[in-house]
Amino acid sequence: MSLQVDNLRVYYQTLRGDVKALDGATFAVADDEIMGLAGESGCGKTTLGHSLIRLAAPMRYVEGRVTLDGDELPVWDSARMNEFRFKRVSIIPQYAMNALNPTRKIGRMIAELLESRGVTYKSIEPELRRRLDLVKLVHSVLDLYPIELSGGMKQRMVMVISTLLDPSLLIADEITSALDVSSQKAVAEMLVEFRNRGFVKSMIVVTHDISVLYQIADTILIMYAGKLAEKAPTETIIHAPRHPYTRLLISSLPEIGVKYADTRLTGIPGNPPLLLAPPIGCRFRERCPVAFDKCREEPPFIEIAPGHFIACWQESGTHAQA
């Protein structure tokens, strides 16, 4: 078991109180698993991704345990996390294009980065060059400043740098969202390639674009308003989702071939609750078409079939009885 997260709670401190952005997450990511993490904006998916690598103010650690390959990650202690960052946990940030230091040539920047982690540039250089070949970047980019690279080249460069020390866990935060379809496909396929070649053991791909996840992810975790709603193998989430939120989310996606004139798709009425004082019980209750009395209590996130977890009384209740 590569990554195990137990009851992780991370709040944002504001003057008006804590915003419960991540309120009790328990899940696991296996070796060689690409887990997609999806949900609406403000559902806590980015908070979850970031809390596994850099939990900085105004984020506040409340409780929970994270273990990676059997070792506990001190996510609450930013200084101690330094031992793990880049080497064992790494991230490709959302705006990868702006993640490079503009005042250094790329090669020098990488050398400084490696030194700060106690690795010599010389020892890693041959591997670095092999990986540049893999993503089709010429070696001379190492002698260029970031401004001399196009957006797509910078994106590939950041992907190579982030995975250079073969981390156990890679977090890719909305990296395909700003790209057009052809670049999106290239970047997404590169993530899979990195996993297949063993550069990265497990991966969490954070995105709101479920159709991209369907292409590359092994499992998908759906979040809603700071809570986990459903986690299952990709095929199950797309073709046989059980949580009402997942169902509505999947059915609101327009597909090629669907035309307004033939089928009018519908969105999900209502808005997600404010997380400053979230409602008690199931947080999707207000918008849920199948809510009933029991939903005033908080549904547990339980396994209803092998590898299929869900937090919904309608589904888990019937399952428990059966």
């Binding site: 609406e40 609101s252 798709l265």
Partner: peptide
């Protein structure tokens, strides 16, 4: 926009 609101704006255009 998010997937769930996206389709509402699209329907509005229609």
């Amino acid at each position: 926009l998010d997937a769930s609101t996206r389709i509402d704006v699209l329907n509005l255009l229609a």
